[in-house]
Design a protein around this nucleic acid. Structure first.
Lengths: 220, 220
DNA sequence: TGAATAGTGTCTTTGAGACAATATTGC
DNA sequence: GCAATATTGTCTCAAAGACACTATTCA
């Protein structure tokens, strides 16, 4: 009556060339052995403090990194989503700067999220729900900063916001909002030169905002 | 290694005399037998289609009603939250008009949520998270309508919004927003007389909005 | 008629977006 | 200087809130 399989899955997202990418790995075991799927695994009751810790462990084991941002997404459940039987998967989503995924020693493949994914289980739905959550939260928080690297320019950050929200933002408004949030500090003497034009000032997140989200009263 | 207990819990909320109340029931079995706690129970793998259906079943069994609004909240997990062992509880929250809870034949008790609750397990946290979610969603959606009855006046609805959001709303702005959402229809000849003053017009939700939320671009 | 709440009109203030002017770089 | 992008100033327009006026009921 309570034969329920308990797992966690992680929708690990990053951004590259103005495109959102999701991390997938070839499955080592049945079911769907060899197929590309979201990183995931059983909850280890003897080892994990809770599902969040299980997700941290999965990211570390499968992608070799510690994600700057990780949040519980939704829990998927039912008799048919996993051929092994009635199952529960506590889905999470993680945001990681591209360099962090790329430099790590892992077998992760990155797939653009705008095409058809055709992942096994209900992983397509998980990705879709993660994108919805991300799109919503980006409108009224500092969440997108976790996809930028340690240092970034305001035009770069604006492009990230635009990719996540799926629509252009007014430049003046964007800078006003970022100013209101008061979460960035200027990198002294740091400029990003990228061609025959004025270089952009580099910024970094203030320490206080590396651990928590800044919320906006009114959205972007 | 995968000895995990799987349950669902429901934060069933209603509003009475401008105060938010949560439904609790005396526990029939150990642990915490006799203590007031959120309605919940094991997932029945042979019977439930998924966790959402399990929550519907729990509400029906324990409170004798079908909630107009039900949504998955968060999943709570860990070795210590339930004395029976490493457990997962998929928490949901439900919104129900007061009359529906009150008329039903059940053993539900309603407690104001503003005092200290001291519920067993991590149920206090569940209630707190439900209130946060409710407060957030109320700012930019029609969610509070599910706490009103079949018919209601605009002043009544405004008071519900104010209770959920925890702050007063400008009357003119409120009516402008409700008008924009275009989700209410006037009840012909329906007025709520309540004393020595002009009676208020009764409205009801248009049919299309009984099943889905209306979202606002900018919040209340 | 007076008190009380419902409902509406309108003015003021605030904030978002448009536009454009200035700044800095490599060629 | 010219092209290209960064950064900032300012004007315009739309939305939110304040205020007040009218409407309707019962005592």
């Amino acid at each position: 009556m309570n034969q329920v399989i308990c797992t966690v899955d992680v929708v690990l997202l990053t951004i590259r060339h103005d495109a959102l990418m999701v991390a997938v790995i070839a499955r080592e075991h049945a079911p769907f052995k060899g197929r590309l799927a979201l990183p995931g695994g059983y909850i280890h009751a003897n080892e994990d403090h809770n599902a969040y810790d299980a997700a941290i462990r999965v990211i570390k084991e499968k992608a070799g990194i510690v994600a700057p941002y990780l949040e519980q997404l939704l829990t998927f459940s039912g008799p048919a989503r996993d051929p092994r039987g009635w199952s529960v998967s506590i889905a999470h989503y993680a945001l990681v700067p591209f360099d962090l995924v790329y430099q790590a020693d892992n077998d992760v493949k990155l797939i653009k999220v705008d095409g058809k994914l055709s992942l096994p289980f209900d992983h397509d739905t998980m990705v879709q729900k993660a994108l919805e959550r991300l799109s919503n939260k980006s409108q009224y928080s500092s969440l997108p900063c976790f996809l930028a690297g340690d240092m970034f320019t305001l035009p770069q950050l604006q492009r990230i916001y635009e990719v996540l929200m799926g629509e252009p933002i007014n430049k003046v408004t964007f800078r006003r909002k970022i100013g209101e949030m008061d979460m960035l500090e200027l990198v002294e003497g740091g400029f990003a030169a990228s061609g025959a034009h004025r270089p952009a000032q580099l910024y970094r997140l203030k320490n206080a905002f590396r651990q928590r989200l800044m919320l906006l009263e009114r959205g972007m």
